[in-house]
């Protein structure tokens, strides 16, 4: 273990890398989607340009907006940064990893969502309320599924700390775990629902009546909107990194040497790039579900996670 100061500095750097590369991931998804739809794609860096443009723009607020509306972008981004800080991206065993375990991580996401949903209701328009109501419906069904997946992980590794759990998985080598197959599938579905991708929400839509995430942030503009967009990009990154690191932990640095760290960056980059291609392929083949099919979708996710847990208990523990 390196000197604590170096470790903290590394942790800070990793967090910065995490939040700085989130727009890149979003840009990459757009690219892949465009290619799959036979369209010319914007640059991978387009999300950065969009953010830059929004940061420079003036804020226009609704007359009814309260302080809660104005502070929500900061809170949402803050929770996302905090969540990003505790996820091992390039290396495990950083001091920040111990601040919060994966249940707290879910709590951070819930905190951000709580404020986001409140902000949707603050102006008092029907679109915002609609978005909030739908978001909370999706979230309240996705959260148990997510925790169920987390339980399987933490029961396998007997730890809820992500870093420890990943370290354990790395140590135990390549083991075919039926539990993880189900859990991975379940967690993917949760991630799709939580990050507002198709078939749950259409990130590209601007039809007021069908929106979920966009409905809540309809009244935001300028830097507020930039913060919200950035936060949602970080959220997408969080889920992608979680899936990549839990189910394919190989490549992540376990020592703080320069080589290991560089390899860690390369590995996570490659994993995320591939994962996103998979996501885009899934998205392209699907229409958005009818709103009340979403619970069925999430039930299935929950069931998969439950099956993962059961097969862990039945097939893996009892030996």
């Amino acid at each position: 273990m390196a000197h604590p100061l170096i470790a903290w500095a590394l942790a800070l750097l990793q967090t910065l890398l995490f939040i700085a590369s989130a727009p890149l991931l979003a840009g990459w998804i757009k690219c892949v989607r465009c290619v799959l739809q036979n369209r010319a794609s914007p640059s991978v860096l387009q999300p950065y340009r969009d953010l830059g443009k929004l940061f420079r723009k003036k804020v226009v607020l609704a007359e009814e907006a309260s302080w809660l509306f104005r502070s929500t972008p900061y809170i949402v981004l803050g929770t996302m940064i905090l969540a990003a800080a505790v996820i091992p991206l390039v290396t495990v065993r950083l001091p920040t990893d111990a601040i919060a375990d994966v249940i707290v991580l879910v709590g951070f996401l819930a905190l951000g969502r709580f404020f986001l949903a409140l902000a949707g209701l603050d102006i008092g328009t029907s679109f915002g309320g609609m978005g909030s109501s739908r978001e909370m419906m999706v979230a309240s069904l996705a959260e148990p599924a997510m925790l169920m997946a987390v339980f399987t992980l933490s029961m396998t590794a007997s730890s809820t700390n992500l870093s420890t759990a990943m370290h354990y998985l790395l140590q135990s080598g390549l083991v075919l775990r039926p539990a993880f197959v189900f859990t991975a599938a379940g967690l993917m579905m949760v991630a799709i629902a939580e990050t507002g991708r198709l078939p749950v929400d259409n990130p590209a839509t601007h039809l007021e009546l069908t929106m979920i995430h966009e409905g809540m942030i309809l009244e935001y503009s300028g830097r507020h909107l930039a913060l919200m967009e950035w936060a949602s990009e970080i959220k997408l990154m969080i889920y992608a990194v979680l899936i990549a690191d839990i189910f394919l932990p190989w490549g992540i640095a376990t020592r703080f040497t320069a080589w290991a760290l560089v390899m860690g960056v390369v590995a996570i980059g490659a994993k995320l790039a591939l994962l996103v291609v998979l996501l885009a392929v899934i998205e392209s083949g699907l229409a958005k579900m009818r709103l009340f099919r979403v619970p069925e979708f999430l039930n299935l996710a929950f069931l998969l996670c439950l099956l993962g847990l059961l097969s862990h208990i039945i097939l893996e523990v009892g030996i």
């Binding site: 989607r33 739809q37 369209r39 198709l198 069908t210 392209s284 083949g285 699907l286 229409a287 958005k288």
Partner: peptide, 16 residues
């Protein structure tokens, strides 16, 4: 109609 249900493939193909 494809686009309104988020089926981008259909939207772009028929648009084309």
């Amino acid at each position: 109609i494809c686009g309104d249900v988020g089926f981008a493939f259909g939207q772009y193909q028929f648009g084309r």
